[in-house]
Amino acid sequence: MATSFAGVPIFYYEALASILFFIGLTGAIARRNPLVMLMSIELMFNAANLAFIVFARAWLNNAGQIFAFLVITVAAAEAAIALAIVVVVFRFAQQVDVDEVRVLHG
């Protein structure tokens, strides 16, 4: 199974990663639901990870994998904090629309 992927040009992987990144970015900008925005950000992380892992595989250097691992860990921390903020905001404002919640505007 693994061999069947052999021969796929790295460019294809990079194009895939870019598309995923683009989709994630669009979501993060366009959506107003903070949960979906966060998920879009996760998508972008994953696109980056994919690129790292492909390059690691190409160079046969596991530094890329280590970097991807760190990204996953940091993403976990990020998600936890962000969701905590969402919960707090919801408790405070009874809504989560990022355009409506403007407490930082003063």
């Binding site: 021969g7 990079e14 194009a15 990144f21 690129a51 390059f55």
Partner: peptide, 15 residues
């Protein structure tokens, strides 16, 4: 991002 990775990909060896 695409341009950056494309440049990188161009330098990478084939899998």
């Amino acid at each position: 991002a695409f341009v950056a990775t494309a440049i990188a990909a161009a330098h990478a060896p084939a899998i």
